[in-house]
Amino acid sequence: MSQTDLHTAHQLPSERRIIAEIWPALLASALGLLPFTVLSTFLVPIADWAGAGYAETGTLRGLAGIGAVLAGVALAPLIGRIAPGAVAAAALGLMGLAAIVGTFSGPAALAVFCLATGVSNALLYPALSTAAADRFGTTPAAGRAATLVMTAQTLASTVGAPLLVLPALFWG
C-alpha cells in the first residue's frame, strides 16, 4: 500500500461514524416496513376484523406492488428534482396517513392502506439511500451509507415479525 493509499484509508469514516451521521435514515428505513410487517404477521385477525376473507386480504397486499409501480412510473422523473430528504419526509407522511386509514374496518380501508403503503415505500427507500449517500459526497463512504440504509430495511424485515409476535403472545 502506498503512502497516499494509507493516508486516504485513515480519512475514511468508520461504520460507527457513518451510522452516527445517518441514524435518522436508518430508523426511517426500519420503520418503513412496520405497516406491512404488522399486516403480514396478523393477516388472519386483521381479515376477521375487516370483515374480509383471508385470501381477499392477502390479495389486497398486492395493491402495494401496484402502488409501487404507479409511483415509479408517475413520480420517478420528478424525484431527482426534489431534495431526497423532502421526498423521504413526504413518503413517511403518506405512510402515516396510510396507517391511520388502516385503523378503519373494512376491505376498502385495507385497500387504501395497502396502495398508499406501496407508494410510500417506493418513494421512501430510494430517497433514504440517496440522502444517506449525499452526506458523504463522492467518497467510498457514500456507497457504504446507502448500503447501511438497505441493511437496516433487511434487518427490520427479518427481526420485525418475531418482535411483533412476542407482545401478541403475552397479551393474546
Rank of each mutant, 00 (worst) to 15 (best):
Q11S: 10
T147Y: 03
I100H: 13
W23P: 04
L63G: 07
L70F: 09
Q3M: 12
G96A: 15
E56A: 09
P24H: 06
F42P: 04
G106M: 00
G80P: 08
A122V: 04
I46T: 11
L148W: 07
D48Y: 10
A98T: 01
A64S: 01
I66L: 15
G172V: 10
D48R: 08
A122H: 11
A71M: 13
S129N: 12
G62F: 09
A133D: 13
T130N: 01
T4F: 10
T139R: 15
L60V: 05
I22M: 11
V159I: 15
A146Y: 04
P13W: 02
A161K: 01
S2P: 00
A47F: 06
H7R: 15
T154D: 15
A55N: 14
T138A: 14
V44L: 11
A76Q: 06
R17T: 11
L94N: 08
Q11K: 01
G137D: 12
I79K: 02
T41H: 05
A90I: 04
P140C: 11
P84F: 04
L124M: 04
A74C: 08
L12G: 09
D134H: 14
L128R: 00
V165T: 10
R61I: 15
A145V: 02
A131L: 12
A50S: 05
P24N: 07
P35M: 13
L128D: 03
T4N: 05
I100S: 03
F170V: 14
I100Y: 09
R17W: 10
D5L: 11
L169D: 13
A133C: 06
P107Q: 13
Y54I: 13
G96N: 08
A25V: 07
G106S: 00
L92V: 10
G96Q: 12
T37K: 09
E15K: 04
T139K: 03
A109V: 00
A68D: 05
G58W: 03
Q3T: 10
C114W: 07
A156N: 01
A74G: 04
P45K: 06
G51H: 05
L155G: 08
P162Q: 12
W49H: 02
R144M: 05
R16A: 14
I82T: 01
L63Y: 00
C114S: 10
P167Y: 10
L12Q: 13
H10Y: 06
A91H: 01
